[in-house]
Write a protein that binds this DNA or RNA. Sequence first.
RNA 1: GCUCCCGUGGUGUAGUCCGGCCAAUCAUUCCGGCCUUUCGAGCCGGCGACCCGGGUUCAAAUCCCGGCGGGAGCACCA
Length: 524
Amino acid sequence: MEIVERVVEEVNDLDVNEQRRILSEIEPKLLVKERRKKEISLPPLPHAEYGKVVTRFPPEPNGYLHIGHAKAAFIDYEYAQMYDGKFILRFDDTNPENEKIEYYDVQKEDLRWLGIEWDIEYCTSSNLPKHYELAEKLILQGDAYVCLCDQSTIRKNRFEGKICRCRERDKDENLSLWKEMHKDIEEGGAVLRLKGDMKSKNTAMRDPTLFRIIDAEHPIQGHKYRVWPTYDFAGAIEDSLSGVTHPFRTKEYELRDEVYFYILDKLNLRKPHLMEFSRLSIEGMPVSKRKIKPLIDEGKVSGYDDFRLPTLRGLKRRGITPEAIRLFVLSQGISKSESTVTFDQLEAVNRKIIDKRARRFFFVPNPVKIYVENAPALKKKLKFHPTEDMGYRVVETSSVFFVPREDIKSMREGDIFRLKDLYNVRISEIKKDEIKATYEGEELLKDVEKIQWVTEKSFEFVVLVGGPLFIGDKYNPDSLKRVRGLVEESLKTARNGEIVQFERFGFVRIEKEGDSMVGIFTHK
RNA sequence: GCUCCCGUGGUGUAGUCCGGCCAAUCAUUCCGGCCUUUCGAGCCGGCGACCCGGGUUCAAAUCCCGGCGGGAGCACCA
């Protein structure tokens, strides 16, 4: 044991490159392996044949996509890639009351931002004639019937497992009623139901509704149709007909599997390999419209792109990259066990990605003035990135600087610290609003704090810092904080949307509008 | 209430179908160290888990039974 410890210590004392070099001499295989393991991968798909896998992502165009959608979309997309198959984007727009024309495009934009591409795109609403045809087939086979009961009766009967009279009607009557549904029967007056099993333990099988009447104008179809398929019917039919081999859905649909296969069975249609995975939830970040909508209405968040929200637009504004979302979401896998992930897991992934790309700047929150006696006037080149080649800016220094009050707090007269990348100073006098210091040379000293600074050529800057919107179930009124400070002039070169790092402060995404500029805190 | 699903370290996950190679994977957090002109990144190391109880078996995270805990569904919404 002691020997092991001693050896470990010895190895640790070596330079990393040295370690690597020696390892490559002893056992080069180890170095290769290390790299391969980094690639994340989904478990193999059952019943999958290379080149023949077809997946689909079926959003309803009724809102903005969020991280939960991203999980589904990435799983679908990734599997199609993995097996060199096809990936379909299908808009499940079968409820004209909910769909809005703008969301078709908005959702596509969001998917493209994620880096997802699809082979085929279509809307379920464009296939209604086919749906009607299959519905008639079911009616003629005696597997579906028109129910004239009102909604609450249906509900009650279903709960109690009771059959209603409508179920006994014969085919021809059903067929003519079905035709009537398209014409004169008023909304809510009739539905087409599957003849399932009213005594089934699975309540989803108790004659689920297949079609209902909705007169609202459809964003694409207008008033062309008024009989609309429900999710149970449309989902199953579309998956089968469009050739999807491996459809995924979230766990809450699990009870509906039986209905899904039953419908396809009665219609003699191919049955895909349906799979479910758990929903993704992030602590303190509501994903449902039910929770977000009121926040927007009450002005507690700015909109669906508020950076405290896990919508894709919100995450984008915050500075979370699509690559990070992909890695994060895939790391969750297709497990069925429910979990609430903390945001820092996403942060960790994101940090590694943006660290390599973010230009570094000095931002001084809550600044305090510092006057350095006999300070040399310098024109200092400061690199934008410690290791990557991103160029540099030149800063002219005199004897006036600003540093974070927070850092000075713990210091006393006589203490020495380094203006990072510049030179050392020694505090000679601490006054309320100003600190006097003396120049102490450029030599890099061990164990001396390195603090970021700005000169008088800096400007005021605000960083918006977002916290959790909910703590437990309770709304958190302090989810938005503003940090004011001074930032070096060269930040003006930042592009709108650029993610930078304010050294020792954190990553910040820059938003520019005209002459004004704010920062949105990404994470540490 | 009924039905279904889930239960692996602080967190998230792999493994569970087809029991042994699992004294259990990877990531993250935390702790220690190395490196570094950032409290960032990188590198090395460490702590830490199979919900409980029975059973089957030479052998169980994995199969069976019974508890307990969590989630979901019981819509003319998807």
